[in-house]
Design a protein around this nucleic acid. Sequence first.
DNA 1: CGATGAGTGCACAATCTGCCTAGTCATGCG
DNA 2: CGCATGACTAGGCAGATTGTGCACTCATCG
Lengths: 159, 159
Amino acid sequence: MTIDELDARLITLLTAEPRLGVLECSRRLGVARGTVQARLDRLAERGVITGFGPDVSPAALGYDVTAFVTMEIRQVAGHDPVADRLARIPEVLEVHTITGDSDLLCRVVARTNADLQRVIDRIVDVQGVLRTNSIIALDTPVPYRVLPLVADVPRREGR
Amino acid sequence: MTIDELDARLITLLTAEPRLGVLECSRRLGVARGTVQARLDRLAERGVITGFGPDVSPAALGYDVTAFVTMEIRQVAGHDPVADRLARIPEVLEVHTITGDSDLLCRVVARTNADLQRVIDRIVDVQGVLRTNSIIALDTPVPYRVLPLVADVPRREGR
DNA sequence: CGATGAGTGCACAATCTGCCTAGTCATGCG
DNA sequence: CGCATGACTAGGCAGATTGTGCACTCATCG
């Protein structure tokens, strides 16, 4: 599944100014309104654009500490029951099963380092979790982004 | 900085149905339109909502492999020059400076495992990078989310 | 008590959206 | 080659929404 250059320009435009309407987009991109509508519909249909949700900053809510916690789990139980329980902890923002020494990697936030301890305690409390290892993110020189990827795809695919 | 229960409901609603307009939100939440507008403006102003960008799925673009790469860097140079160069690699979606044995943690995507090798090679090529260690995310039982946190804040803050 | 901030209801003009039609153009296929 | 198909353009229309302003109420606070 791929996108062309117009798709990339559309996504880039909407990322820069998300509140733009379809009509305004068509003007900026120099194409007909119907085209923009059709493109957006198709991008959503194909799953390239999964939503337009508001991006909430945990830091703005007072969660200034971000950490990555890897953990070993009791393998007999499997990943899912553990992941389900982790999902019930609001501060756990993301969970992955991974290769390597550990079994799961999750991204957590907390209000302070002391608060992080509380969150980790909750994680350790989860049944099936044997051991955890925490890495604190001190700074984020490159925040999550997808734009460069989007801009790159049409190029790689031969326009 | 905190949010109240109405803010939380608003964010939850918009996350569930991002294409809703202000008017529709006010109807669903049972408040006046002006209130919704004022809340949104304030949330954006305070940085709680940083944007409404389209959420693009790398997987839908063919980037099915996600990995976390930790790396040691030549400390004398500092983090920033390295982060800047990493930022030029489209497949690098996120970079953090971290505590622990390594200095940087980044999230990368690739089309295949073989393609991941190419991406890692590009990372290793970055000046200042001494050693890397890759962990592949096999599955993501809990995809990135903030909603539980948003719903939790008003509760913790005594409504 | 008066000031202030927040929310409500209402109104108006300007705009945009959803939907539809018709015509053009390039591609692919029998 | 001729035709069907998909994508894009250019308009059009009715209805809904947005941005903005205004007057009024209510609760909090010094």
